[in-house]
Design a protein around this nucleic acid. Structure first.
Ligand SMILES: [Mn+2]
Ligand SMILES: [Mn+2]
Ligand SMILES: [Zn+2]
Ligand SMILES: [Zn+2]
Lengths: 138, 138
DNA sequence: ATAGTTATTGATAATGATTTTCATTACCGA
DNA sequence: TCGGTAATGAAAATCATTATCAATAACTAT
């Protein structure tokens, strides 16, 4: 999804479109890496000098609410965000450069059914994430 | 693994066995929930009044180094630890009460191979976690 | 068992990231 | 264009985690 789409989504949900939000949205929407608030701040200030770190936090919060971005958990930390994937997708992350890609096609039906039977749990959700080295880094 | 085994492991690795460490190890080893440092602190003080929060942090750090515990990532936070599973196991967590269980038997061979071919990534590792409601909470 | 070495401890202070406060600004519907 | 009010950024407050440090206690070598 493009930055314009995100801004439209914000607008549709009653949020105003401001220069600060434009800067944040633009940077996060185009990034192929998960970005921390501070990274978004640094990038965003290239587009909009006056951008405040607090506004970055607040904007990321709203984008997450609207499911336009998601938090990415990594061994080095869990405060990074990336554009949300389409439909049922999971992330594949490069352990060297941080490059992120979405993939689909995981099928855990059989597994969850069997575990459900064995444990008595009602299984509602799963987190799956792959780590490796991208074509450039391997 | 029991608390005694963990203490033996600590000792084998040159660490001293102290009352503070006993309290931390005992509580974490027997818990079926992922515990935050503060939770470990509160529980640990029931065994050893003088326990300091700083020591809890330091002990958890060492237990993680020795692969006796692992960090658990959850929607509500990622600073919680639980006893490590045996071999290739993943966690199943109750969304209501936090009860945790290990399961095994996931097979991502075919998936990772296909994704590897498609993306050019060399896939080294995967994170998998299931969420649901335990038998008591469903 | 004792003594000496030194890892460990907990209180305290420092740090760093995130949140809150608040007066000012500027978006946008009327 | 104007007015109501959401949004902003600077500054202060908060919160979790880490570093400091003098006192203590675990273990090793006698
Ligand atoms: Mn996490
Ligand atoms: Mn697995
Ligand atoms: Zn890479
Ligand atoms: Zn439960």
């Amino acid at each position: 999804m493009s930055a314009e789409t995100w801004l439209a989504q914000l607008h549709e949900n009653g949020y105003r479109i401001t220069a600060a939000r434009r800067a944040v949205v633009e940077m996060v929407a185009k990034s192929t890496h998960a970005l921390t608030p501070l990274e978004v701040y640094d990038l965003g200030r290239k587009k909009y000098r006056a951008l405040g770190l607090v506004t970055v936090y607040r904007t990321l919060e709203k984008l997450e609410e609207l499911h336009l971005i998601q938090r990415v958990h990594q061994p080095m930390g869990c405060q990074a965000f990336i554009s949300m994937g389409q439909g049922h997708q999971h992330l594949l992350l490069c352990q060297n450069c941080g490059q992120a890609e979405y993939f689909e096609g995981d099928d855990l039906e059989a597994l969850t059914k069997s575990i459900s039977k064995k444990t008595g749990y009602q299984i509602n959700e799963h987190w799956l994430q792959l780590f490796g080295l991208c074509a450039n880094c391997r």
